[in-house]
């Protein structure tokens, strides 16, 4: 699923990386626990999280996450944005809560990490 479609489905906005909206995410992982992200995510995934600190970007980098979407309208600080730009990881923002964000994407055919090839 293209990142632009993710944004549209989540009524979201682009925090940074607006030039990367045509990249594909193969699956998604919703988590606030970064150790779980490290343990279960596969590459080319979209990370959906309620945390906005720079460690989220660092975690994403470690496991080759394609893009991050913050839920519940939480806006990341400049430090997080700068790091994401440096690592070329686009950031999205949605006002939906975690469950609904995940649910909408899943309903639209984006698989979870345990299902995707």
């Amino acid at each position: 699923m293209k990142l632009e479609e993710v944004r549209r489905i989540l009524d979201g906005e682009v925090v940074s990386g607006s030039k990367s909206l045509d990249i594909e995410v193969a699956m998604a992982c919703g988590a606030d626990l970064m150790s779980d992200v490290l343990a279960f995510i596969k590459q080319d995934a979209l990370l959906i999280t309620g945390l906005t600190n720079p460690q989220v970007v660092r975690t994403a980098e470690m496991v080759d996450v394609k893009a991050i979407c913050f839920v519940r309208g939480k806006r990341p600080g400049q430090e997080t944005i700068t790091m994401a730009q440096k690592k070329s990881i686009p950031l999205l923002l949605t006002h939906l809560p975690m469950f609904e964000a995940c649910g909408r994407l899943y309903k639209n055919g984006l698989p979870g990490c345990s299902e995707a090839e």
């Binding site: 970064m34 150790s35 343990a39 999280t49 460690q55």
Partner: peptide
């Protein structure tokens, strides 16, 4: 924990 760590999964992740 607020940073998304400290849930006691670190060492088991390393082991895995």
């Amino acid at each position: 924990r607020e940073l998304g760590f400290g849930a006691g999964m670190g060492l088991s992740n390393i082991q895995k």
